[in-house]
Design a binder for these strands. Sequence first.
RNA 1: GCCGAGGUGGCGGAACUGGCAGACGCGCGCGACUCAAACUCGCGUGGGGUUAUACCCGUGUGGGUUCGAGUCCCACCCUCGGCACCA
Length: 969
Amino acid sequence: MARTYDHNAIEAKWRAWWDEHGTYRTLGPDDPGFDASRPKFYVLDMFPYPSGKGLHVGHPIGYIATDVLARFKRMRGFNVLHPMGFDAFGLPAEQFAIEHNIHPRITVQQNIETMRRQLRELGLGYDWQREIATIDPAYYRWTQWIFLQLYGSWFDPSANAARPIGDLIAALERGEFAVDETGGPVAALEREELAVDETGVPVAADSEGGRPTRVLRAWSELDEDERRAVIDGRRLAYLAEVPVNWCPGLGTVLANEEVTADGRSERGNFPVYRRPLEQWMLRITAYADRLIVDLDRLEWPEAVKSMQRNWIGRSDGARIRFKVEGAEQVIEVFTTRPDTLFGATYMVLAPEHTLVDVVTGETERAAVEAYRAQTSHRSDVDRQVELKEKTGVSTGGYAINPATGGRIPIWIADYVLMGYGTGAIMAVPAGDHRDFEFAIAFDLPIVPVVMPGDGWLREMAERAGRRVDLDDAGALRADYLLHADEYPEGFVGEGTGVNSANGQVSLDGWPTSVAKRRIVDWLEERVIGHTEVQYKLRDWLFSRQRYWGEPFPILHGPNGEIRPVDEDDLPVELPPMDDFKPRSDDDPDAKPRPPLSRAPESWRVVELDGVRYERELNTMPNWAGSCWYYLRYIDPENEGRIAAPEHEAYWMGDHGVDLYVGGVEHAVLHLLYARFWHKVLYDLGHVSTVEPFARLINQGYIQAPAFVDDRGVYVPADEVKERDGKHFFGAVEVAVEFGKMGKSLKNMVTPDAIVARSGCDTLRLYEMYMGPIDQSKPWNTRDIVGITRFLARVWRNVLDVESGEAIVSDAAPSAELERALHLTIRRVTEDYEQLRFNTALAALIELNNMLVALDSPPRAVIEPFVIMLAPLAPHMAEELWEILGHPPSITQQPWPEHDPAKLVADTLELVLQVNGKVRGHITVPANADRDSVEAAALADEGVRRHLDGAPVGKVIVVPGKLVNIVANQ
RNA sequence: GCCGAGGUGGCGGAACUGGCAGACGCGCGCGACUCAAACUCGCGUGGGGUUAUACCCGUGUGGGUUCGAGUCCCACCCUCGGCACCA
């Protein structure tokens, strides 16, 4: 019976078989049949959000890669956890529902079903019994539970970790330790009383010498509301009125991470406005340091690590206090270059700074008010356009430079941002480009205080005819230091201090690193400054005025008190509502109106202990569910906790998920948030690893040609015809561009179409063959035929298409073929291990090409070949395995091992070089010694011709590789 | 401007710790099969040069180290991605 390679029938057959036999079921530690002796491998895909109608061929490239690896690892004897689920809450899913005017509950279900079907048709071997969806109440019950953990904890800086909030309360009540102005507890203080300042922040009692005075009150003097304010101000989840990103177009506020650089929403591209609103915040800033430091232990792409470092934005510097002339107040600044303090010739306050009114003089008041009004109405976009031109006005006030004692003018300018540092700077025009531009624009003095490096300084000093010498401490002596006029534009980098001495401290001649230490020591002695670390990272804005998200497990009492929902009452289910749409608005001053405010009163109002509570009406952002989903796969049906500890410990092991594959677009969103939550859970003892994802790979984008007409509008790529090298859409000639495949460029190719025509194994192989997994590469449907031909040759190598019978022989393979097999096993194994699927497949193609020449390929080669092909082409491999006479399934077959003894050949071909250029080849016995190899090389005709009688100098013999003869000229 | 990744045939891409540049695939050329085409199979395919050898050039550019450089070092150019008045 004729038996051609019918991919559709074969793929359908094996998918059904796998389903029926539970081939991809993953057993956990307490399942019967679980083999605890095997090592674990947890390989995870970033789960998709079911927002659209389906996938294009760019989406599954990461899924295929992890699937190949999962199959490979399974055959290598690992217990493999390779799950899939759906990130179904949040803006993407909700926007899709709004656009189609169907309830998200319905569209999400439809989209999940479509995607599940598409994923199945790609032959992806997930354990669907572990599938999760973030919208499932049994799932988001635990999302809410984690929120309660955050609410119920505070960050203890002395432990550098989160602890239950009860610990803090107890300690405060016992008076065991105080809390400083940043919220951190300080060691028990004997003399100083525990007290709280006017903003409710507990502080240590004032010390002598210049620290700003505070109103101090003891903990015991506080009433209940005040105490609650203090405690709530320390929680990892807290309510605060802060300037937020309000997006009326989406009807919600957004996290910083969700706003683009030009001040628009990442979703939908609506304008975003800054305005103060009371919102739930998560104290991710407490973890800024650990989030940076622990990056070093992760095997992640450098790009992602540097994006996270950049986003967290650690700066080491100093805080310095400047006295304001004629006023009580001081201006505090943060600087990374305290060593340039002597060059601070003016100060700048952000226009919103609270001290602007204090320092502004009567004559300047009108101008200052006008400037403040002007900047407050300017959007971020406008400010960016004017980036290059510095603007600002003088306040008329003066401050005292603590190092020089000089009077320096105070200005306001919008190049100083209220949101970073203290909202005020000391301006050193000679040491900072921005200050320099500002000083030039407003004719402010420029005093150079740093010169480029020792070497430069010596050179200039010598040219000026001055003596150059080092003193005992290695500092250049002051008597030959250069004058400002020799380097009038200043110097921004690190170098050597100049013009920086006041009789008490001198930075002159010191390199920047030392100068920083010296000046900070001096400042600290006088209590006018100290070292400080600043971060760009802000706390995470966690409320959304949207319907389609997890409700907060929070109740608000009649007097504004907050009451967390009892753990046993979770989940707080999202109430069914037909009118789920957000109230969007064009008016930036419109009020947010959360859809849950229209929920029935029976949901909104809860009576407990005779008190009437209102539920929190905001919902969580879409990142909430994805912050911990990798933990739920481990034990998805556990009703008592997020995962049983023994399951969690087994699958997370000592470093977490072994491999995580997904798009680079989550570099500072999901990946940062998930690390933060994980660390909180770690601190509280709920997980056993410090980091969630040990290794990360970002799959590259698939690019495809896109076509634009002369109006600049993209036309559907699949309707464009090519004639004579030109492209036409109908009768219109269109231009070709190359870009990321997707809806916006109208250049999508769907996997369904490729699967129907060529088969899913072919698609899998092609996507893996295109190039390295982490590289973006162009899609080219035309190239698929190469894979089709390969699989057809494999098929014909195993069986006779006419009879349908296997044609393999039981004879031993030739020595050459056997050697090729073992080389291939080694290459393929290493390549799979390193996720180099393109070169693994190239090796398989090479071996197969050798087999094509044989009438009846040996079983001893074919069988390991089919096993090695199985991770890439599981359906065909199953079919061939059956034809070869084995019962299914090939997925459980042990992986072949290469035999190093079989790799050794009897003879070796060596390259002959003369002066490094290839001039011939010789074949020598593998065990030939150096002398005989050298003699054979010198006897070679090509070598002799090129030596041309010249005397032989050195002869380099690289064993097994080459002989290079160096001729003396 | 700063940070990160990367520049190799007509195209996608190979090349272990420095050791025959271009594996494998597409495309292309020639041939076989065919009435013909497609499929399939065989041979060839970096550029120059030669009937064919020989030989010369060649991994973004310019230097350097080395017996030998795509690979290491220095300087620069370009592309892609991220950040961007962060003090």
